[in-house]
Amino acid sequence: MAYKTGIEGFITETLKERFGEMDKIRAVFREMKDDAESLRDNLLIDIANPEYSDLKRNVIAVDGSNYQEQFESISITIATAYAYLNNKQIERYLPNVKIVPPYYSNLVNSIRMRNLEYNVALDVIKEINNQKETVDLILLDGAMTFPDEALGDYIDNVPWVKEVYDEHHEAVNNFFDYVIDNNIPTAAVVKDSMANKYFLSLYSALNNFKNNSEIDYEFLQKNKDFINKWNKEGTYNIVSENSFLRNLFYKKQFCRTKYAEVTCSLRNEIPAKQLRGNVIGFYFKSLPSEKPFFVEVPIHFKDKIDDITQLLSTYSYYSLRPGYPFPLYVAHKKVELKKKYAKNIALILRNIARKDLKEDYNLLFSDKFHDKL
C-alpha cells in the first residue's frame, strides 16, 4: 500500500518491523542464549595466561589499506600494505596506484591490497631468514580464506579482474608455500566475522566427517539439532554467529573454541593450493570485557596451536587496544590511508593526467552524473 506522506509510511513500516522481524530476532537471541549455556563446557578450551617474556619474541604483523575515487569512465585505486617485525624495528611499505575501469573496482582494489600484504610479508620474512633470525609468528589481518575461486566467474568478461586474480594466485601461493615449507607459524585474525563460517563448518563435518578438527563425531551427532540451526533452512541463519559467541564467552577470559576445519564451509575452493581443505579456525578471547576474534591457521601448524594462542594471549593483554593483538594494532595504525592523504595522492595523479592528456582529460576524469545532482 502506498502512503499519502513519506513520514506516515516510515512510521507504519517501522512499527511493522518492530512487531514483525524484530520479534523473530528476539526469539532467536533467547534460543541462542540457552544453547550457548548448554554447550559452553564442551566447546571452550582454556589457553595459557599472558607471559611478559613473550614480548621479546619475534612477531611479524601485516595489514593493508585502500582508497578509490570513481569517475564516469575510470576509477583511481590506491592500495598499500605494511609489515613490521616487533623487536628488530624492521618495517616495510608496499604501495600501489592504478587506474582501472569503474566496474568491479571495489573488488579489484580489495584483492590488490591483499596481494600487497602477502608480498610485503614475504619480503620481510626472507630478509629475517637471511639474517639467521627466527620468526615465532606471522599475524595477518583478515581471513586467509578470502577470496575464493568464485572470482573466476568474472574472468571471461572482465579482463582487469583476471589480471588481479592471476596476481593473487601467484602472491598467495608464493607466501603460503614459503611459510609452510619453512615451518613458520602463521595466523590470520578476523576482526568482524559475519560469515558464520565456524558453525557452518560443523554442519559440513556432521554430513561429511573427516576427523580433521578437535570436535569429535560424537559431539556432532549429540548436538545435530543445534548444528542444523546454522544451515540455510535453520533458525540461526538470519543473524551472524557473533550473537551466539557473546553468550558462549560470557564472563570468560583467556579461552578459545575447539578448532574446526573451515574451508569445508566455503562454496568454492580457495586459490592457495596448500590451504585447500587445510585451514583450521577457532574463536579466541583474552579479556572478559572484549569481544572474541576469529583466528585461521593452516592445519600444518596444528601442533603449534598452544604456542600460537599463548602469543595471542600475551599480545592481546599487553596492547593499547585491549583484547586485540598489539602488533596488528600497530600495523593497522601505521598503514591506514587517511582520506585527506589518499585524496592528495589521487590529485597528484590527476594533475599528471591533465598535463599528459590535455583536451582528452575530461573524457576520462569527468565526475559521475549522480555526484553532480
Rank of each mutant, 00 (worst) to 15 (best):
V295E: 00
K24G: 00
K338I: 08
L328S: 11
K222N: 13
D356P: 04
A205Q: 09
I128G: 02
V262K: 07
Y259L: 01
N242W: 14
K56D: 13
E51T: 11
N58H: 15
A143R: 09
N237H: 14
D181T: 12
P271T: 07
L275V: 15
V135P: 06
E290S: 15
N183V: 11
Y154Q: 05
F326M: 08
P50I: 12
A81R: 00
F369S: 07
V97H: 02
F301K: 08
I78P: 01
F294Y: 08
K16G: 05
F244V: 03
R18I: 14
Q253P: 12
D192H: 10
E13H: 03
A272P: 01
N96H: 12
L220N: 03
E290W: 07
E336Y: 14
A346Y: 01
Y84K: 13
E69F: 04
I238N: 01
L107R: 11
Q70A: 09
N173R: 10
N174W: 09
K368F: 06
A27T: 11
I90W: 10
Q274V: 13
F219K: 02
N58P: 03
N231V: 03
F29Q: 09
E21Y: 06
V100S: 02
L139A: 05
N119D: 14
E37F: 13
I345Q: 00
V28G: 03
K16T: 13
E233V: 12
L202Q: 08
I25D: 00
V179C: 02
K16F: 08
S289R: 09
Q310M: 12
I308L: 06
W160K: 07
R57S: 09
A346Q: 02
D136C: 02
Y217M: 03
K368R: 15
E51Q: 08
D360S: 06
S243M: 07
G281W: 04
I25F: 03
N231W: 07
Q221M: 08
S243T: 08
K304Q: 14
V59G: 08
R112W: 07
K210N: 04
I45F: 09
Y329N: 14
T134V: 11
K191E: 04
V124D: 02
L266P: 05
V120G: 05
P271M: 10
